[in-house]
Nucleic acid binder design. Structure first.
Lengths: 206, 206
DNA sequence: CCGCGCATCGTCCGAAAGGTTGATCCGCGA
DNA sequence: TCGCGGATCAACCTTTCGGACGATGCGCGG
């Protein structure tokens, strides 16, 4: 029997996860918490679990889910499976570096979730298929490093400046700004300034 | 004599702050740390300070500076003055809600910094002039609430989608998307999609 | 019932952004 | 020394955006 702990501040999501877990003959939910602090308290109380399903975003307090994952893995050697709604590349990397055993997006299919729980309980790594795809994409295109100047331009783009404003701010001609932006779009595989800004943010390059 | 602690992961910034503080006859730096953990350890050691200058971004670990501020104020009742480079409206609010005594941007003039330290040491609130302006701007324009549909469009804009892509995604005509976007720009006081996305992010509306 | 805000769509037009090509200059390493 | 990549700029063209109209339908509260 795999003992599962749910740590998520959304009651609805907890209910959903509980339904999935309890639907499996060899799994059960042994505890639910809505904050990272509660979770650590419960674990400190001596109870044990085979795997912890952890949401990265904990409501208002925002004790970093990644930090919580790291603490748990270090202190209690319990596998932590991060299950969260959205997640930028940077979030995912942070969680994995902190010691999370796996990372799933909440919209992952149920079988994937169940498989992930089993893998995590067994101490294996469990990454959702979307997550794998994104990390692969990240590994595939790292040769494309932005130059310092390009990054400078990109930052201003992400701040909402127009090409003209950027040109004035960096003492350039608009042509140069456009030139840099063209290179940026090529390197990032994006189609527009806004998309470039978005993916840059996702990859934590700002 | 006002005893100041510097908590910033940038050695250069620490040096700069130290120079300013030591330049005042009635202030001195009694400790420097580069991580939030170190800071908490030092405080736990029984040493005391009159005010702590805290950077919100702590290198890789990223123990939320806001969380650190909250912990310090609660545990040690020492005023915390947040001094950071950039800071979105959401960051500022989070820090203040967590209990920070003040908030200054690093590019604030020296006198403002010194005045801030004195105020903070005296337990008074100390907000930089830029910060005040931003918070005021935030209070002034809250009547302009985005409708649900507009927010939906804005989210896709922030994700880097083109008007055409948004139209297909939301089963709309491009004209409607542009219409929504025009309203969004009016309400947010922005001039372009990218700027709208940036300010929306700043205000934590996504 | 009428007005108002919201959502929906259309047209027209000027401005901004993006693509393409090509050019110069500079520094660094083979 | 020669090549290469980065940074800078230019001219040209297409696409996309954004602004300024207007128009319809719908629901809700005075």
């Amino acid at each position: 029997m795999i003992d599962v702990v749910l740590a998520d501040d959304h009651p609805v999501v907890r209910a959903g996860l509980r339904a999935v877990v309890d639907g499996q003959p060899d799994m059960r939910v042994v505890h639910e918490t809505s904050t990272a602090e509660d979770l650590l308290d419960w674990l400190a109380g001596g109870d044990r679990a085979d795997v912890i399903l952890l949401d990265l975003r904990f409501g208002a307090t925002r004790m970093s889910g990644a930090a919580a994952a790291g603490t748990i893995v270090q202190r209690h050697r319990t596998p932590v499976l991060v299950v969260t709604t959205y997640g930028t590349d940077a979030d995912i990397l942070a969680a994995i570096e902190a010691g999370a055993t796996g990372y799933l997006l909440k919209d992952a299919p149920t079988e994937e979730l169940v498989r992930g729980i089993r893998s995590a309980a067994a101490g294996e790594v469990a990454l959702g298929s979307d997550v794998q795809r994104r990390l692969l994409g990240r590994l595939r295109a790292p040769g494309e490093t932005l130059s310092a100047r390009e990054l400078e331009v990109l930052r201003l783009v992400a701040a909402g400046r127009s090409n003209d404003a950027i040109a004035r701010e960096l003492f350039l001609s608009v042509a140069t700004v456009k030139s840099h932006l063209a290179h940026i779009n090529t390197k990032l595989g994006t189609q527009s300034r806004t998309e470039a800004a978005a993916t840059a943010r996702d990859r934590g390059m700002l």
